[in-house]
């Protein structure tokens, strides 16, 4: 009963707290993510060998197994894996955040316009989208890398350039269905300008699936960034990055398993955390969920 009375006027905070209670898995995801982000941010203080996260190498200590002074062992050039993992989190999460922000901003804006305007405008936007979708991310990155220096920034641009069309497609289809809802017609009949109708009605009602998609995609972005790093088009030595660590370590898996396993686990756990959070968000953000 007390739940029902709360639901009468759900504050944003109330909704979030109810989500935590209702969806334990999503809560686990959220907690994991917060921990991962905090640990990455605090890398300079948490890392046992902060210099290892950046430039230092120790040729004499290469490939030490976990234990003793190195909780997760050391890599080929003797750097502490834990330290690099913490620093790598910064790069990987930064790439994921910027890529998704860029892709979503462009993709959602174009999608809402395409879906709401329909007709020729929609056709033009969707054809442009198709062209971008036809380019594999790696091909586009290669092209970009020729023009620009291979770097984290290049990787971000390349991934974002191939990622946004998915959000355009998703948003356009939602927006065009929202366009035929009664409340959009009602707003148009009031004389509300198209831009305002899109901002106030179409965009907010299209966002839930996008938000969910974003959290589901975060893992994928980290993995793509890793692949780019492997090809020498993304993060460059000595920058720490999870994908780079995995690629460097995978040849050693049978002999020195720790080099690849820990960054691999980090990617897996992060992707998982984003995923369950996404599922939880999907449920929590549905305005009808708390109807009764």
């Amino acid at each position: 009963m007390s739940l029902a009375t709360v639901a009468v006027r759900p504050s944003r905070l109330g909704r979030v707290s109810r989500l935590v209670r209702a969806d334990l898995l999503a809560a686990v995801g959220a907690v994991l993510l917060v921990l991962i982000v905090l640990a990455s941010l605090a890398a300079p203080w948490l890392a046992p060998f902060p210099q290892d996260g950046t430039t230092a190498t120790h040729a004499t200590q290469s490939l030490l197994p976990p234990g003793g002074g190195h909780l997760m062992g050391t890599d080929q050039v003797g750097r502490d894996v834990l330290s690099r993992l913490l620093y790598g989190g910064r790069t990987s999460l930064f790439i994921a955040a910027v890529v998704l922000l860029l892709a979503a901003a462009v993709g959602v804006a174009l999608g809402v316009i395409a879906g709401y305007a329909g007709g020729v405008v929609r056709d033009v936007i969707m054809r442009v989208t198709d062209v971008f979708l036809a380019f594999p991310a790696l091909l586009l990155s290669l092209a970009l890398a020729v023009v620009l220096q291979p770097s984290v920034r290049t990787a971000i641009l390349a991934i974002a350039a191939t990622w946004w069309p998915w959000y355009t497609r998703l948003t356009a289809s939602i927006a065009s269905s929202i366009r035929s809802r009664g409340y959009v017609d009602a707003a148009r009949c009031l004389g509300v300008s198209p831009a305002r109708v899109m901002l106030r009605h179409v965009l907010p009602n299209s966002l839930t699936p996008v938000l969910v998609q974003l959290s589901l995609d975060a893992g994928g972005v980290i993995l793509t960034a890793a692949a780019l790093s492997y090809l020498g088009l993304g993060a460059q030595e000595p920058t720490s990055e999870w994908g780079l660590m995995v690629e460097q370590g995978q040849a050693l898996f049978t002999t020195d398993w720790w080099v690849v396993t820990f960054p691999g686990l980090a990617i897996l756990v992060t992707a998982f955390a984003f995923n369950v959070l996404g599922e939880g968000l999907r449920a929590a953000l549905d305005p009808r969920r708390n109807a009764r």
């Binding site: 035929s180 009664g182 409340y183 017609d185 009602a186 009949c189 009031l190 106030r200 305005p287």
Partner: peptide, 15 residues
């Protein structure tokens, strides 16, 4: 001139 649509098709913005 103002419309009154039927309730079935979300005449009010759910958010």
């Amino acid at each position: 001139v103002q419309p009154v649509f039927q309730d079935g098709n979300e005449a009010l913005d759910p958010r």
